[in-house]
């Protein structure tokens, strides 16, 4: 069985003011077909960069290392990237704010037309037919949406339209970057339900990025936790939430306010660091309450602890 996404020691960096800053450092993970995979992290964790790498939308001035495969096809090797035939066709992307993926100057119907015509050479009638199908799948009434401009739709409808648009490419891997962060709470639930349903109906492989641990738990089967560019924990959602292995994961879980449960919020001092140069030792060293001597000297490798539950920490 071919894996949907396979990353081997993938690193991505950007040149900023003459310095090379690494946003993702040697991340290795696999996403199986039809899986719901979630990458959780705070700012500077590199999660959005990983999403961009998978979706094929890294900026030209990015620097990469390691390997990335989509459906077995090599798209990143060292600093060479080639997304021919992959970007848009095999992998599609939904950004955080629907405003970013919908062209404000085109009616929704026109946007479908441009995308489908570009990719598959469909004419207007065919494109609109497909558009209707996908819009319905996304829970929208096609006639109410096709002739409208994005700003005429509500935030929730925009996001659904954006999802429908990205699905219309026929791609089986959907990368969603914080799909619910810019939405009001009551819409969040709806989009989560939508994504779950689509996964089943369209056989999608869902990769999504979020900072919300609980959302990850509700939507995904496997969770990857990233901190400062490193993948620090990877495992089944239930396991990661119930028995977090990495101290950072525990911190993330314990500091999330949950409605209805009013326990004191525990937190460790400090803030997540931004992208930086490659350093030694564990990135969480400064804030970890369990740090050991070796943690400052060497970066912990990923180890498998428990069933397909990996963690990069010297405690194990």
């Amino acid at each position: 069985m071919v894996l949907a996404v396979e990353a081997k020691r993938l690193s991505v960096g950007y040149e900023e003011l003459e310095e090379l800053l690494w946003a993702v450092r040697e991340a290795s993970f696999e996403v199986g077909e039809g899986e719901a995979f979630c990458i959780v992290g705070e700012s500077g964790s590199g999660k959005s960069t990983v999403a961009s790498a998978i979706a094929g939308i890294l900026p030209p001035h990015a620097v990469t290392d390691g390997e990335l495969r989509i459906w077995g096809k090599l798209v990143v090797k060292g600093n060479e990237r080639s997304y021919e035939g992959v970007r848009g066709r095999l992998v599609t992307y939904v950004p955080q704010s629907p405003g970013a993926s919908l062209n404000p100057y085109l009616e929704i119907g026109d946007q479908f037309y441009h995308v489908l015509n570009n990719l598959y050479g469909l004419n207007r009638r065919e494109a609109l037919e497909k558009a209707r199908a996908y819009l319905k799948m996304a829970g929208l009434e096609p006639d109410a949406v096709l002739d409208r401009y994005p700003h005429e739709l509500s935030g929730g409808m925009q996001q659904r339209a954006a999802i429908a648009l990205s699905l219309s490419t026929g791609a089986k891997i959907l990368v969603a970057d914080e799909p619910t962060s810019s939405l009001d709470a009551h819409l969040r639930l709806q989009i989560v339900e939508l994504l779950k349903r689509l996964r089943v109906e369209a056989g999608l492989t869902l990769i999504f990025i979020t900072h919300d641990m609980l959302l990850a738990g509700a939507l995904s089967e496997r969770i990857a936790v990233m901190y400062a560019g490193y993948l620090v924990e990877l495992g089944p959602a239930r396991e990661v939430l119930r028995k977090p292995l990495h101290p950072y994961t525990s911190m993330l879980i314990e500091s999330v306010p949950v409605l209805g449960i009013k326990r004191p919020l525990k937190t460790y001092a400090g803030e997540p660091p931004g992208p930086g140069k490659l350093g030694k030792g564990c990135p969480f060293y400064d804030r970890c309450p369990f740090r050991l001597g070796v943690c400052a000297a060497e970066t912990p490798p990923a180890k498998e602890v428990g069933e397909s539950h990996h963690v990069a920490c010297w405690l194990y």
Partner: peptide, 11 residues
């Protein structure tokens, strides 16, 4: 919407 409705998330 805060309890993420449907299936209970693992607490």
């Amino acid at each position: 919407s805060y309890t993420l409705g449907v299936s209970n998330p693992p607490i």
